[in-house]
Amino acid sequence: MKFATPPGAKFTISNTLPEELRTPEHEVKEAAVEVTSGEFGYYVTQEIADKIAGQSTELNWVAGWLDFVITKQTFLYPVTKLPLIALYAGLEKTIPCILQGIVPIPLVLEEGKLGVYFVPPDIKNEATFAPKHYKAVYFSFSNAYLDKFKSEHPQFQAVYDKKRESEMQGQRIEPIDLNANDYHIIELLRTSTLQGEALKKLYEAYTSLLLIGYYLRLSEREKLPVTKTRQYHEAISIAVQYIDTAYSNPKSVPEIAKLVFVNETTFRIWFKDIMKRSPAEYIMDQKFLHVEEALKDPKLSVNQIAHMTGFADGEHLSKMFKKRYHITPAKFRMNLPGYPKTV
């Protein structure tokens, strides 16, 4: 999602995050940074994107953190070259907008709200900014990504169709309130230190949880039929949060099921439906994600990493690592870019 400046406005663009935003509360590791500065102040986009397999430019999804540090009232224009479908969360301050559809839709991108928006291409959408610091995050999707999501979660087809039809006709369906779970997922993504494919897998899993939670609550509010209950989303979300924090020494799968008040058999079915892998596979994935990260630190021995990540010892970790990656941890870390070869 890009924002154009007012016609005739003088501005500069850079790729360096302003010093005041280089803090744990604002900076997104591994993100591409774009800063647009002008007499109005500046705004920053920090994006992480996944390209469609086999394509050089087309994107499967984009996650972007927005900071608008506005010092003089101005208008900015959300623009897109392709039809954009985005899940948008207002994190700080409310932005009044007009989205141009068949009929212009006046709305406010509210603080503390989560919504899906359909933005037509090459149209002058308008957003009004008073002198404030605004924060938001968006997740935009290709049609292929959403088609896949809908095929995997057909229970949301009715509410998806109603929302899209309403907005194309110039009507507006109010967004839902961000809950504590939404904020937690967004923060886990923003602060992740993973890289490459591991980071993309994390984004896809957690973005699916955000979408599921959104459509589930919207379906209930609009009284549209769904075949899963609120417990479907919340139980698995809580379980994932627990595993992410206790990956080195988690409870057993039956104990995790009890933790979220779900029958073990049902829990396993629900977990695999949402996360596309079993609970045990997800736990092991988390362990190895942290092993990969720890191997970047030359000060840590394989034995130390084993104890940090829940393996019995270095020998056990090496055996499991080689089975998974077909290479030893020692050789893996020696092949890492920038790793000191003399260590």
Rank of each mutant, 00 (worst) to 15 (best):
1 M>R: 08
3 F>Q: 12
4 A>Q: 09
5 T>A: 06
9 A>Q: 11
16 T>F: 00
17 L>C: 03
17 L>P: 03
18 P>L: 00
21 L>W: 13
22 R>Y: 04
23 T>K: 10
24 P>M: 03
26 H>Y: 15
26 H>K: 11
29 K>E: 03
32 A>S: 14
32 A>E: 14
33 V>D: 01
34 E>A: 06
36 T>W: 00
40 F>T: 08
42 Y>N: 10
47 E>R: 13
48 I>H: 09
51 K>W: 06
53 A>V: 14
53 A>M: 13
54 G>T: 06
54 G>E: 09
55 Q>D: 14
57 T>N: 10
61 W>I: 10
62 V>C: 13
64 G>N: 10
73 Q>W: 01
74 T>W: 00
76 L>H: 05
77 Y>S: 15
78 P>E: 07
78 P>W: 02
82 L>K: 12
84 L>Y: 09
91 L>E: 14
92 E>Y: 10
94 T>A: 12
94 T>H: 05
100 Q>E: 08
101 G>T: 06
105 I>L: 08
108 V>P: 00
111 E>T: 12
114 L>Q: 09
119 V>Q: 07
120 P>A: 03
125 N>A: 09
126 E>A: 11
126 E>K: 15
128 T>W: 12
130 A>V: 02
132 K>E: 15
135 K>C: 11
135 K>V: 10
137 V>W: 02
138 Y>H: 13
143 N>P: 03
145 Y>W: 12
151 S>T: 04
152 E>S: 04
161 D>K: 07
168 M>F: 06
171 Q>C: 08
171 Q>D: 12
171 Q>S: 11
172 R>K: 13
174 E>T: 11
181 N>C: 08
184 H>S: 14
185 I>E: 08
187 E>G: 07
189 L>C: 12
195 Q>N: 07
195 Q>M: 06
199 L>Q: 09
199 L>C: 02
205 A>W: 01
215 Y>I: 03
215 Y>E: 05
218 L>R: 05
219 S>W: 00
222 E>M: 03
223 K>T: 07
229 T>D: 10
234 E>H: 08
239 A>Q: 11
242 Y>K: 04
243 I>Y: 03
243 I>S: 05
243 I>L: 09
246 A>Y: 01
247 Y>R: 07
252 S>D: 11
255 E>P: 09
259 L>Q: 14
260 V>L: 02
267 F>E: 02
271 F>A: 04
273 D>C: 00
274 I>L: 07
275 M>T: 09
280 A>M: 04
282 Y>R: 03
287 K>H: 01
296 K>P: 05
296 K>H: 14
298 P>L: 03
300 L>P: 07
301 S>T: 15
302 V>A: 06
304 Q>Y: 02
305 I>H: 07
305 I>N: 06
307 H>E: 13
308 M>P: 01
308 M>Y: 03
309 T>W: 00
312 A>C: 02
315 E>P: 00
315 E>T: 04
322 K>R: 15
323 K>W: 00
326 H>A: 11
327 I>E: 10
329 P>M: 05
331 K>Y: 09
332 F>N: 13
332 F>S: 13
339 Y>K: 04
340 P>K: 00
341 K>E: 14
